[in-house]
């Protein structure tokens, strides 16, 4: 199994946060069909992981567009 670890917002990345839900959706879509078997969401608090003005947590956008589910 090959896992890709991705950051959420709010972790200590220099460079900061994801640029928004649209970007997260595009990353998720681009990962669909890739060599990775799973994603590892780094950090925590995904329900609080929203850009200003967005209602969808970034990680859920990635997951939905790569994996087709959003539990």
């Amino acid at each position: 199994m090959i896992v890709l670890r991705l950051s959420q917002d709010g972790v200590d990345d220099f460079g900061g946060a994801w640029p928004g839900t649209d970007y997260a959706e595009a990353i998720g879509a681009a990962l669909k069909g890739s060599a990775y078997d799973a994603l590892h969401r780094a950090s925590f608090k995904d329900l609080d992981n929203r850009q200003t003005g967005d209602t969808t947590p970034t990680w859920r956008a990635v997951r939905w567009f790569c994996c087709g589910w959003n539990a």
Binding site: L6, F14, G15, Y23
Partner: peptide
């Protein structure tokens, strides 16, 4: 990854988070 599997690892995780190189590509700010 090959060495890890040879050493007995069941999974390998490619670190694309937390400011490491792959994240520097993923993040449009960097």
């Amino acid at each position: 990854a090959r060495r890890a599997v040879d050493a007995g690892a069941d999974r390998v995780e490619v670190h694309g988070a937390n400011g490491y190189l792959l994240w520097q590509f993923i993040n449009p700010e960097t």
